[in-house]
């Protein structure tokens, strides 16, 4: 695990995801302000920022949950219609910050729902149950089980989603998102609430996903996780992207340090209170934070 390097893909081909100037305004509040972002094939891009910076709102703009007030979102060079189900059909899948599984369906059924956009058997087909239907169902099941194996949930295929422990619920969300065979996967705080072992396993899972050819855009607060994984990281503060680049660029950026980067790695409560006015304290915090990350890294 420690030998895997995060490579920056420099491709001259058109980016997979091309976001230009996206702005989201709710009445008087500008949640996302003129953000540009590109994700290339097979890249893992991180999106960090303090709480309330607009990261999830940004995700929602990408997936059609919100219609951006300004700006364009292009996937594979096509502007996406602002309807979530069409975005998924086009090839972008996502997970949610607060887990949104189908609680009263089984694990397998959750993943089967994920396959909805890649199958087309409708009501008539279901009623008639011809050979085409049977084949499609068997195929879906096989693919779903494959995904469950991939995420390590195969043994619990018939368990109700809401009875899974927290970490496995997060994995199920990912499996479900993968079921739609996306080219780009949006992960919204996938390791929130996880312990270090689970976080480690999540890292491996994300690399394995990338190895399957899927690009990933991930929102996270766990710095070690982000910098282990991501080719590039963008920082969002109060709706604006203030810097984007590799680890050094981000970690050493003045504005980032000022605004945010004081979060301890293991989320010890009260250990960091990054405020813009107390720059001395911030410097100390940052030093600690940076030191921590170098110590425990690689």
């Amino acid at each position: 695990m420690t030998d895997v390097t995060t490579t920056t893909v420099t491709s001259t081909a058109a980016p997979l995801l091309d976001v230009r100037g996206v702005t989201m305004r709710f009445g008087g509040l500008t949640a996302v302000n003129n953000v540009d972002l590109t994700v290339g094939e097979g890249e893992i891009i991180g999106l960090i920022g303090p709480n309330g910076a607009g990261k999830t709102t940004f995700f929602n703009c990408l997936t059609g949950l919100y219609v951006p007030t300004e700006g364009t979102v292009k996937y594979r060079d096509k502007v996406l219609p602002p309807k979530p189900h069409l975005v998924t059909q086009a090839g972008i899948a996502r997970t949610f910050q607060n887990i949104r599984l189908f609680a009263n369906m089984t694990v397998l059924e959750n993943v089967l729902v994920g396959r909805h956009s890649r199958t087309k058997e409708g009501l008539i087909s279901a009623l008639v149950r011809g050979p085409g239907y049977r084949r499609a169902e068997a195929d879906s099941r096989a693919k779903a089980m494959d995904l469950l194996e991939f995420t390590g949930l195969a043994g619990k295929a018939d368990h109700l989603a809401r009875n899974l422990p927290y970490g496995e619920q997060r994995k199920l969300e990912i499996a479900r998102a993968l079921a739609s065979e996306p080219g780009l996967l949006l992960l919204d705080e996938p390791t929130a609430g996880m312990n270090p072992q689970e976080t480690r396993a999540a890292e491996e899972l994300v690399f394995a996903i990338r190895d399957r050819g899927i690009a990933i855009l991930v929102i996270e607060h766990d710095m070690r996780f982000i910098f282990n994984l991501c080719d590039r990281t963008a920082v969002l503060v109060q709706g604006q992207k203030i810097v984007e680049g590799d680890r050094e660029t981000v970690q050493n950026d003045e504005r980032v340090i000022t605004a945010y980067l004081g979060e301890p790695l293991e989320s010890v409560p009260g250990a960091s209170d990054s405020t813009a006015d107390d720059s001395t304290a911030d410097d100390n915090d940052t030093a600690d934070g940076a030191a921590d990350s170098t110590e425990n890294d690689e």
Partner: peptide, 8 residues
Amino acid sequence: GERVADRA
């Protein structure tokens, strides 16, 4: 009325 945005 006003359109209320849904928090995902």
